[in-house]
Every structure is written in structure tokens, then in C-alpha cells.
Design a protein around this nucleic acid. Structure first.
Lengths: 231, 231
DNA sequence: CTACTGTTCAAGCGACTACTTGACAAGTTA
DNA sequence: TAACTTGTCAAGTAGTCGCTTGAACAGTAG
């Protein structure tokens, strides 16, 4: 094999990893798996595809090394191969947001108008948690909360939010604010939650990104099994 | 457009960016452009493709927003859209190196056996530069040196290295060591340079990565026009 | 063992991708 | 203006991708 052929083969290897992300459905899978492990039919429901097709995409991701599997009884759980995959996903999103011509429009079409939604940066949230001024609410599905969440956050899945609004309001001291977070900057759950809270006459904001970014930044997380730990 | 359709369209947008990187030839283009801007026929020569095909790939990269162009006379210069693209490329390489099953083999086939080559980390090189113990040699083509290099580095393109070996050896004090660097961790130039220096009886090592990673880390760089500046 | 659940595989179709060749467009030089 | 350089576009071919359908293959439960 010549020098040129070997170089081409090496860069084709890098391209194989990019190819694994080069499908909207696989990108959605990565976004969900960044929250924690899931099995195939959950993932199929998340991305709105058949189980067969989801299995096919998961094989593609596994073939590129981005996800690994764990068998538990009759179920097979998929998870990201490592936190590096989250880094890659975040970098991809950042480049798309900065340079893709139509991404803002696509995001607006999915998320709706965010003008009335105020966002909180990670740094600001850290300060407000330390000052005890804020109730942090995890509005992702309960399974994702269980597999890891911001230390001290309360789980109120967005589907239950209207039913549990009164409970939330009585628990929050007058001076305190509610901050909701979900899967990431392009996840609609926290937006919906904040809109519902604002409609209920309550001051609320959303974290600008989500749990994977929080964990990646080395900030305090806890999970159903581990309890609190520093990042 | 429904919620599901809008979500699919958004993630298809992210996937478009990944698709731009999902070709070995385009990945090579990104790797070269991370060194600085180039025009089409240079790039065609770098990746070993026809000008027409290279132009086609550059259009694909431009369409995804990863590169931009600048016209100068009859030439069109391509450059990366921003430093974020370098971040993405580095993240992609890291994931491939960590999780792709055959990447080590592909890298070994291209780069050869690296066992006898000692590498220097960025941090160590910073310390040794500060201590004045080292001659830093940029072995990339001269054009890439001109568009930006490690502050204080001397340009000795690897093609000229054997001819200029004597010059180098007389310039290096006895206690000092030579550190060569090039485009990045998967670039062969610095390897070749270090092997040539070792064959000449000289102690030499390579920087573990390359100039784009150095600049990205905010370390001191300079260019033909700007002179030295802190990152 | 049989029945069942969760997951993967195989075939098949339409759409897209990578590269080649040769023609064309934009800008420069004389 | 004409001749030239640089870069892009168009057509064509071989190969790959994405999704569907229906069958096959673990494991588990009875």
C-alpha cells in the first residue's frame, strides 16, 4: 500500500465516524443517548421510526464505535461509548449553529419563538444554587432523571407539570425562582415547562443548555444509585 | 409542519454538517485548511485528486458552512469558517482514535512504527521554550509557516531538511534539543524530520500534535504579517 | 418442550454520493 | 479586443444509503 493510499485509508477512517453522525435520525439517537442508556423500542419511539430501522441505525453507530451495548434479560441497552462522544456531538451542534445557513430557521420551526423565554447560563445557575435562591427542576422523562441529574434538582417530567403545578408553587419560597432544564439547547421540554410556569403567573427561566453539558463541564451531578458527587 | 417533522428537519440540519465531514477527501481538506488558507489547485495536489473533484468537495464543505472563500485576482482562497471547525475536527479525530476499531492499524500503516519516536506534550514544550532549552522547528511547507506558526519557531520544510541539516546542527547549542512539529498528530512530516535528525546523530523529538492544536490552546503564535502575539 | 418478547437480519426500491471527462464562466494580461 | 489562467458546472456511471416489509434469532416464562 502506497503512502497516498494509506493516507486516504486513514482519513476514510475518520470519515466513517462522521458518516455515523451524518443522518438526522442517528443524530437524534446520540442526543437521547447523551442523557443515559436506553433500549431499542424506547429509542424507536423517541426518534419516531420503526424498531427495525432504529436497530439498523444503532448498528451503524455501534459499527463506528460511538455506542456500546449491554444485555439485561431480554432487553439490550445502548449507551454512548464515552463522554468524548458527547464532546463530538456538542462540537457538531456548535458548528452547525454558527455556520449552517438555515439552522436558525429550522430551530425556530421546531422550538417556536424563544423571545419571551429567558435563559440562565451554567455559571449563573451554579451561583444561584450556592446562594439557595433557586429551585432547579428536571423536566426530562423520569428514566433520564434517574440515570443522572443536576445535584439537588427535582424531577417533574414536563408531561406531569400542569398536574403538579400547585405542588411546585407551594414549595418555592417567595424570593426564589424556578429554573427548568432538559436534554440540551435544542430540546423543547424546558421551553414548554417555562411557558407553562409563566402562564401560571410564576417567574421561571430555562438553563441555556442541558444535563449532558452540565456533566461535561464537571459540575455537581447525582443519580438514583450514586447520590451526590462532585463532577 | 408538525412537531415531529420540524424536529427531524432540525436534526437533518445537524446531520448535514456531519455529512460534509463524512468523506475522507473532505476530511483531508479540513486538515490542510486548519493550517491556513489555500487555493484550489494546491488543495487538489494535497489530497491527490483532480481540480474538478476538489472543487466539488470544497463546494460541499462551503455548502455546509465549514469553509468560506476569498477572491484574490484569478485565485480563490479557501479557509475554514472559524476556529470552531477546528474544534469539531479535533473532536472527531479524538472519538475515532478512542473508539474506531481499526484506526490504530490505519494510522500505523500511514505513519509507520512510532515506537522509537519520542513525543513532547504542549505543556512540556511551553516549559522548555521558556527555559530556552529547545529549538522549535516547523517542518510544514513554507506557505503554512507564513500563515501562522508557534512563536519563535524556525521554518525548515521537511523536504529541505536533509540539505539544511548541517545549518541546523551548528545553530543548536550542545545542551539544547530539537523539537519538530507539523500539521497535527496524524501528520507524517514531523515523524520524518525526527527520523532524519536521529539518523544524523542528533537528539530530537516531535510535538505530540500540531500547529492548529497549539493555536486552539491559546498558546503564543506569530505569522509572517502579525509578528508575535499571545494566543 | 412451547409460546412469547425484544431485537436483528435480508431483500428490495428509490434517492443520493464520488469520481471522471469535457465544456463553460470569471477575471487577468497584453 | 483576444488569449490565458483558475475554478466551476453538467452528464454519466458505479456504488452506497435509508426506509419498509417480513422472516429469523436470542433469551425468558410457563
Amino acid at each position: 500500500m502506497g503512502h497516498r493510499d494509506a493516507k486516504d485509508a486513514l482519513f476514510d477512517g475518520f470519515a466513517e465516524v462522521a458518516k455515523a453522525l451524518a443522518s438526522g435520525r442517528r443524530a437524534e439517537l446520540i442526543d437521547v443517548l447523551a442523557q443515559g442508556e436506553r433500549h431499542v423500542d424506547e429509542l424507536a419511539a423517541e426518534i419516531g421510526q420503526s424498531v427495525a430501522n432504529t436497530s439498523f441505525h444503532l448498528r451503524a453507530l455501534a459499527g463506528a464505535g460511538l455506542v456500546t451495548t449491554r444485555r439485561e434479560g431480554t432487553r439490550i441497552h445502548y449507551r454512548l461509548a464515552s463522554e468524548r462522544v458527547v464532546d463530538l456531538w456538542v462540537a457538531l451542534r456548535d458548528v452547525a449553529a454558527a455556520h449552517h445557513a438555515r439552522l436558525d430557521d429550522l430551530a425556530a420551526a421546531y422550538l417556536g419563538d424563544r423571545d419571551e423565554l429567558e435563559q440562565v447560563t451554567r455559571d449563573e445557575l451554579v451561583r444561584r444554587i450556592a446562594a439557595g435562591e433557586v429551585l432547579v427542576v428536571d423536566v426530562r422523562p423520569a428514566a433520564e432523571y434517574r440515570s443522572g441529574h443536576i445535584a439537588g434538582a427535582r424531577s417533574v417530567p414536563v408531561d406531569d407539570l400542569t398536574a403538579r403545578l400547585a405542588e411546585l408553587l407551594t414549595d418555592v419560597p417567595d424570593g426564589a425562582e424556578i429554573v427548568a432544564y432538559c436534554r440540551g439547547p435544542y430540546c423543547a421540554y424546558a421551553d414548554d415547562a417555562v411557558r407553562a410556569l409563566l402562564a401560571g403567573g410564576r417567574s421561571a427561566r430555562r438553563l441555556e443548555d442541558g444535563f449532558p453539558e452540565w456533566r461535561r463541564a464537571g459540575l455537581a451531578v447525582e443519580s438514583a444509585t450514586s447520590g451526590a458527587r462532585p463532577g
